[in-house]
Design a protein around this nucleic acid. Structure first.
Lengths: 249, 249
DNA sequence: TTACAAAGTATACAATATACACTAACTATA
DNA sequence: TATAGTTAGTGTATATTGTATACTTTGTAA
């Protein structure tokens, strides 16, 4: 961090980083731990979303990209602002007040946080720990954990936004490798929406979408009949944008 | 304004207040004028959205409601946060810098603004001028005006959000009187989306929606065959929420 | 009484969504 | 090399929804 730049004391960004392990939706959480320096007693041990305050001379979107790159090493990935959280009691819990005191960065205790969600192909990411542990958690599990600040609410809202957006925009592909099977795509939609989808109808619908392009290659390394691979062509999607009315799945 | 409360210097709220005059979508704009105190020369004369900084002890949503009530006198109306604007150059134009200096409130020149849009039945509102003129403008017109700060961008984004949301959520009714005709509803959807809709198909679809309830009354005061009146029942909408898959129009 | 203006109405066809069960292809192991 | 195990891959019939299209009715006003 560049010490000549100042952070805005009242504004932060939190990134909800989603991934997919071909079974469930996952989200990146960062461990927040603090021991009493004298007794060694654990006073805080929980998780937060990936977030930080923004610099006073930094575009809001850039701050989100900075945090994302800092945690995943990735650039040019899907990132979208979805909501801003500004209740006066967002930092009211005892452990959150303690944490603010402990890190002693001069941040205000009235902070508005701008929420972004990111979709990444988690097969090619190594999360960056720096000083605190960081890991993937199933979204379902994360929702039941007692996260820092209002991060449960932020995660919940991010998930709702994702669920809505995935119906009309071709963003699900961001969570898959470049080459994917239709079964993987189906499982992904099921993981996001919570519905089960009929295989034949799903495949019929997908195969008539011109932007889902069949490749010649097949899966390998699987101990059963290998599936054909596909990729998503944004160029074709953009060309045919006006022809589509219905949902994407 | 309560002088014992402090504003956050870096955070404001802007409200995009939409209305409908049975022909076009309208938006509320506030005049921003400044004359040179010596020469009387007009140095600034343009329009802004309804917005202001938030108090440091005020919930973000409450700040939006405060601004809305201040301008319309209304409470309990539809209000939704849609995006936050945080580019570093949002206050870069000469006239905007001058304005900040002139009002001399101690606001920072790095301000993030949280955008809300509101839908109101403009037939029962009297806009509140206070010190600056305020009026309705056709949205189409407003988009071509050179608004203050980044308010063109904010308005544009609000409009997009409205266009998307109106397809799946029953929010259009907020722009109409409690009792409305199907032609009014159709014109409203047309005004929002820019499409023209076939009358017979529109009415067929609406009449089979149980939450659009026919009343016994008819229009009066019109110089032609009066239309039947309807109202939107949120209770029935909520009850039947699970039965609907398609769009609302 | 007539002209005007908007309200109100039905049917045929096309496209899309849904329900449903078996065979094919490949791997691993006996 | 035969067999079991696992996932891939496929078609048809029906229901629902969307779309295209023009005339009659009902009231007001001149």
């Amino acid at each position: 961090m560049d010490s000549s730049r100042k952070f805005l004391a009242n504004v932060s960004v939190d990134c909800v980083i989603f991934g997919f392990d071909f079974e469930k939706l996952k989200v990146v959480l960062v461990e927040r731990a603090y021991q009493d320096p004298l007794t060694g007693e654990t006073l805080i041990l929980d998780y937060t979303l990936a977030g930080y305050h923004i610099y006073e001379d930094e575009d809001l979107d850039r701050a989100a990209y900075r945090i994302l790159k800092d945690r995943t090493g990735l650039e040019n990935i899907y990132l979208e602002q979805f909501a801003t959280f500004g209740k006066t009691d967002r930092i009211a819990k005892e452990k959150d007040r303690l944490w603010l005191k402990v890190i002693d960065k001069g941040f205000a205790d009235r902070v508005l946080s701008v929420g972004y969600f990111s979709l990444i192909d988690s097969t090619k990411v190594n999360l960056c720990s720096h000083d605190s542990k960081i890991d993937w958690f199933p979204v379902e599990k994360a929702l039941t954990m007692d996260l820092a600040f209002d991060h449960n609410e932020i995660l919940q809202k991010a998930l709702e936004t994702l669920r809505n957006k995935v119906r009309t925009e071709p963003i699900a592909f961001e969570l898959l490798p470049e080459r994917f099977t239709l079964t993987q795509l189906q499982k992904l939609y099921q993981a996001i929406t919570g519905n089960i989808i009929d295989k034949r109808n799903f495949r019929k619908k997908k195969l008539q979408m011109p932007f889902i392009v069949p490749l010649k290659e097949k899966q390998d390394g699987v101990s059963h009949r290998p599936a054909g691979l596909f990729h998503f062509s944004r160029a074709i999607f953009d060309e045919t944008r006006n022809e589509r009315f219905g949902n994407l799945f």
